[in-house]
Design a protein around this nucleic acid. Structure first.
Lengths: 238, 238
DNA sequence: CGCGGTCTGTGCGGTAACGAACGCAACAAA
DNA sequence: TTTGTTGCGTTCGTTACCGCACAGACCGCG
C-alpha cells in the first residue's frame, strides 16, 4: 500500500505528508473482534490504536462489577492517550464495542514521534481535548438525563463512527455501556421502535429515522459533536 | 520575593530551577474571591491559573440552568488546560468555589513556555491526565453512587485542597456542584452530622471525623486520589 | 424436527431522588 | 427593635429506575 492513500483514521489522515511517511512503515493494521480488551484498568499500555472501521469503548468497571462507559472512540481518534500524556496507564478498560480494524503503533514509536514535537503532537493533544469534552458531558448526562435520552445519545455516538445505519449490539451490552439495567434498555428501545425511529431484533439495530433520534436526545450529543468538529476538522489554529 | 521560594502550587513547585526562574517574572498573584468566574463556556481563555489556597470548580451549566461539577482544581493543578491542549475554549465554566489566591499567567507566555518542550510540558500533560481521571470517575459516580456517598467524596476532594478542616460552603452551593436538590444535601448532611462526622451551621462545615467520611464515601475518591498521587508526586518517568 | 441457548418482553414491589411548598432560626441592615 | 434575607429542616405526592422473576421468541445445531 502507498503511504499516501487515506488510512480511514482522521488523526493519521490529518498528518502532513512527511510525518505520515515516517510513521507509515510502523503502522500495523490489526483486526478488532467484538469484545477484545485492548487494555485493562491499571495495565501498562503497549500500543496505541487508531480505529478505522471499529469502535472502542472506554469503560470503567467497579469493584462490585457494575460498569459505565466513559467515552467512545472510533475513526476520529485514538485509544491509549495516556501513553503520550505520560501516565502509561489508566484506571479504565478499553474494549471493542463494534468489530472492525485499527492501525496499531507501539508505544515506543509513538513517543518517538510525539517527542519530535511536530504536527502529531498538536493533533493528538487536540484530540485529547475532545475526549475530555466527551467525558465531561458523559458526567453531566449521567446526572441529569433520562435513560431514553441517553440511549439516543449513545446510538448517535455509535452511528457517527460507523458506515451505514445498522449496529450489531444486544440490549444487554448497551445496558453495560450505559450502566443501567437491561430491562431499562428494552423499555427505552421499545419506545423508539414504536415511534418508528429504529428497528431491532436479536442484536441488530437499524436506525430508520435519525432526525427523530436527534430530537429525542439530550443536548449532550450536540455539544460533544460540535466541540469535536471544532477541534478536529477546522483549519489548524495557532 | 525570591524565585526559589515555594509558590504553594504543586505544578509550579515541581518545575526545575531554570524554568521556574524564567517563568517567575511573569506570574502574577491574584485574589480569587468566592464566585468569581474565571471563564465562561465557550469563551476564549486569556490566562491560566495556578491556585495556591483557593479552589476552583469546573462546572457545566445546561440550557435549562441545571448544573453539574465536572472536576475540582486546587493547588495540585491548573485551571485552563485547553490553552495548551490547543482548543483555546471549553464548553464548561470555571468558578471559584473557595476563596483564596492563585498565580496567573497569560496564555501567550504559557504557550511560549509549553512550546520549549521542557519539563513544563510533561508536568502539565501529566496533570491533565489526572484531571481526565477525575472527570471519568465523576461520570461513574454520577451513574452509580448515592447522594450520601457523593457528598462524602465531594467533601474529601475539597478538604484535600484546603488547610484545616473547615470549609465555607452553603448546602445550596454544594447542591449546585453535585447537581442535586438542596433538600437532598440537607438530608445527607444531616445524617453525617448525626453520626458526628461533621458539624455545620449557616455556611460553615467542620469535618470532625475524616476517617469516617472516607469510610462512607464510594471508591471513587480513593481511585482519583491514588491516580493523582501516582501521576504528580512520584519521581518523573521516562 | 426438537432442543438449548440467547435475546427480548413484561410485570411487581421497592426506593432514591425529585418538585413544590412551607416553617423556622440566625444574622444583618435599617 | 423591627424587618428582610439567608440558610436550614420537614413534609407530601410523584417518578424514574432498580432487582427479581419468569415467559415468550428467535436461532443454531444435532
Amino acid at each position: 500500500m502507498d503511504p499516501s492513500t487515506p488510512l480511514q483514521n482522521h488523526i493519521l489522515d490529518a498528518l502532513p505528508e512527511a510525518e505520515r511517511a515516517r510513521l507509515f512503515p510502523h503502522l500495523k493494521l490489526v483486526a478488532m473482534p467484538l469484545g477484545l480488551v485492548l487494555y485493562e484498568s491499571g495495565a501498562t499500555l503497549r500500543h496505541i490504536y487508531f480505529p478505522t472501521d471499529s469502535i472502542v469503548s472506554l469503560l470503567y468497571v467497579m469493584q462490585d462489577g457494575a460498569s459505565a462507559e466513559i467515552a467512545v472512540v472510533g475513526n476520529e481518534g485514538a485509544v491509549g492517550v495516556s501513553l503520550f500524556m505520560g501516565g502509561e496507564t489508566t484506571p479504565s478498560r478499553a474494549i471493542v464495542q463494534s468489530a472492525g480494524h485499527a492501525y496499531r503503533l507501539t508505544g515506543a514509536r509513538l513517543k518517538q514521534e510525539f517527542n519530535r514535537h511536530g504536527e502529531m503532537l498538536h493533533i493528538l493533544l487536540r484530540y485529547t481535548q475532545s475526549l475530555i469534552t466527551q467525558m465531561a458531558q458523559t458526567a453531566v448526562c449521567n446526572r441529569h438525563h433520562s435513560l431514553d435520552q441517553q440511549l439516543c445519545r449513545w446510538l448517535l455516538l455509535s452511528l457517527d463512527r460507523l458506515e451505514g445505519n445498522d449496529l450489531k449490539m444486544t440490549q444487554e451490552l448497551i445496558a453495560n455501556m450505559l450502566g443501567v439495567r437491561r430491562e431499562g434498555v428494552t423499555e427505552a428501545a421499545g419506545k423508539l421502535q414504536k415511534l418508528g425511529a429504529i428497528r431491532y431484533s436479536r442484536g441488530k439495530i437499524s436506525v430508520l429515522d435519525r432526525p427523530q433520534i436527534e430530537n429525542l436526545s439530550c443536548e449532550c450529543y450536540a455539544v460533544v459533536k460540535k466541540e469535536s468538529d471544532r477541534l478536529l476538522l477546522r483549519p489548524r489554529l495557532s
